[in-house]
Amino acid sequence: MKKLLLLLLVLVSQQTICQEIEINEKNLSKKWVFSDVINDKSEAENAEMREMLEGTSLTFREDKTYTFDFVSELNGTWTLDPAKKEITTKDRRGTNIWHIHSLTKEKAVLSRNDAQQKVIFKPE
């Protein structure tokens, strides 16, 4: 009986941890660091992409400024459209649309513009 209760508690806590959270500015306002990629490429191509993206981060601040750190640091502004599940960033290189595929307390799954690959970011 104790084992069954423990198993039930573990299952409930996992569902709570991995549960989607509301897409809003407060939940996005933090530093997100690269964790993994999701795409239909070969494992060798995925490994190469992981190596290339290692060290990448996105920081969304409550004052609506953001930093995209990939090779060099880009600073700009961001806005959120929660209905479309989109973050629009603007910096010296132009405008990008980040599509939010999933948001939990443990990770954000995003894709940029028309990219098929999804990038998993974890909060720092």
Rank of each mutant, 00 (worst) to 15 (best):
L103P: 02
L58C: 08
V33W: 00
R112W: 05
E73P: 01
A115C: 06
R61S: 15
V12H: 08
I120G: 06
A83W: 02
E106H: 11
E124V: 04
T67K: 10
Y66K: 01
S72K: 14
K64R: 03
D91R: 09
D63T: 02
C18K: 11
K64Q: 06
L80R: 02
K105Q: 09
Q15V: 12
D36S: 14
I97D: 11
S102A: 11
T59N: 14
S111H: 04
T67M: 13
T56H: 14
K3G: 03
N39K: 03
N39Q: 10
F60R: 01
W78F: 02
V10I: 05
K41M: 02
K3Q: 09
C18V: 10
T16E: 05
P82M: 00
M1I: 07
T88F: 03
V10F: 15
E43R: 00
K85R: 13
L74V: 00
A47G: 15
E22I: 11
M49E: 15
S72D: 07
Q19K: 11
N39H: 12
K30Q: 10
K118T: 01
F121G: 10
K26H: 12
W78Y: 05
Q19R: 09
D36T: 11
L6I: 08
I87T: 07
N24P: 00
L53H: 00
T104G: 14
Q116V: 07
E62Y: 05
S29I: 01
Y66C: 03
E124C: 01
T104E: 13
L80M: 07
